[in-house]
Amino acid sequence: MARIAVLFSLILMCCTLRAQPLAVETHVDGLEHPWSMVFLPDGRALVTERPGRLRVIAANGRLVEAPVAGTPEVYADSQGGLMGLALHPDYAENGWIYMTLAHGTAQANATRVVRGRLEEGAWTANEVLFTAQPFKDTPVHYGGRMAFLPDGTLLVSVGDGFDYREHAQRLDSHLGKIIRIHDDGSVPADNPFRSREDALPEIFSLGHRNPQGLVVEPGTGHIWSHEHGPRGGDELNLIRAGNNYGWPVVTQGVDYSGARVTPYTTRPGMIDPVHGWTPSIAPAGMGQYHGSLFSEWQGDLLVASLVEKTVRRVAIENGEVVGDAPLGLELEHRLRDVRVGPDGALYVLTDEKSGQIIRISY
């Protein structure tokens, strides 16, 4: 019965997409590998560029020519650079903006979280809140997404560093984890491993590969995260405190060489994904639809993909996936992130040297 319900939901989703053609237009161009985007209450928007620039989009949609001055230095190489963006839940009162970045050198680098304020075109009051341990010597698998929980604490995804996959199962390493901190970087007393002497106190969940989608669902508080598998085995997970999501002991994928990572696709004590993609779509960003433009999409997850080059609409009900279909955008671009704008339209970031923000509406 469950499979029939999923199939019926998928058919309905596909029919809806065909019945209402989508308008796809370039909203902003002239960006270099845009990575994340947030909308400000005054109508402006902010966008990170992976080489290390924070850009402002004016309320009229024009890209401000000069990048924001005074942003922190980043280690920009391969997948590393300036990455995630998030606004404090009380941004209108305190002005705090949160960013993730690759910090360090080629020989020693790590995912870092900072916060600061935007004042007259400059980044001010910079504070370093978190730096992943240990440092690594690979320029890939940083994670870098953030989401605030209803209690005001901040979740941050940290990748496994690729060559450090075994760290995803170690509690003395932040690699391959989702971490949880207070908005000022301090550690919550109720973190699941806070009382263990052999564990880093910031760890919230473990067993992740490269989680680059992170959404906290309003109302339910459900934490949705997706992560890149190797060749296949991309995962959508429902995150709960203290859970182990298996990597690299458990995966549906194989290594890039074709070799098996592990003989296991499931193990006792490790949480299976709610949904997955094989072959890999390379999920790279995720939003959840709450708006008036696409009324039939309310609560659906929106997953941007690098390899499939589309946005997938994933319907969820009560913590389960009941439908999954591509929007059929026919874009020949690697898609890094998808955001829902105040107008209800989708804003999709293309991961290219001549990057764009694409607006999707009816």
Rank of each mutant, 00 (worst) to 15 (best):
A122Q: 12
Y289V: 04
E65T: 14
V68T: 12
S257H: 10
A345V: 05
F130R: 01
L200F: 10
A58D: 15
G104Y: 13
R313S: 11
S305L: 01
Y245N: 02
G299A: 11
G253E: 07
E32M: 12
A110F: 12
G219I: 03
D29I: 07
P268K: 06
R260C: 07
G285C: 04
L236G: 08
P34I: 11
V74D: 00
L206P: 00
I178W: 06
S225W: 06
F39K: 08
A315T: 08
Y245V: 00
L171H: 08
E317Q: 13
H208D: 05
P67R: 07
V47G: 03
V249K: 11
D300L: 00
E197M: 09
Y164H: 14
R145F: 04
T71P: 03
Q212N: 04
A58C: 09
P21N: 06
G328D: 05
G81P: 05
I97K: 06
N244Q: 10
R336G: 03
S292M: 03
G232D: 08
L7Q: 14
V113F: 08
E120I: 10
M99F: 03
N210P: 07
M99N: 00
A304K: 00
L40F: 01
D90Q: 13
D160H: 04
R334C: 04
E227R: 01
A241I: 12
L129I: 06
G116W: 00
G246S: 09
R196L: 11
E235M: 09
R339P: 04
R231A: 10
V113R: 10
W35V: 05
H222D: 14
P34G: 02
L175E: 07
D198Y: 13
G61K: 07
K309R: 15
M83K: 07
V158S: 02
P268E: 13
V140G: 02
N126F: 02
G276F: 13
T153L: 08
A108S: 12
G285Q: 01
V261P: 03
M286T: 04
T100D: 00
D29G: 12
R55N: 00
R115L: 09
Y289A: 13
T100E: 06
S361N: 08
E296K: 11
D160L: 02
A2M: 11
P342T: 04
G121F: 14
Y98H: 05
E93M: 09
R312M: 10
S292I: 01
Y91K: 07
H88V: 09
V303W: 05
S78R: 15
L82N: 02
P139R: 08
P134N: 02
V215N: 04
L200H: 02
V114A: 09
A92K: 06
P283C: 06
A23V: 13
Q169T: 03
L63D: 06
Y91A: 09
N126G: 07
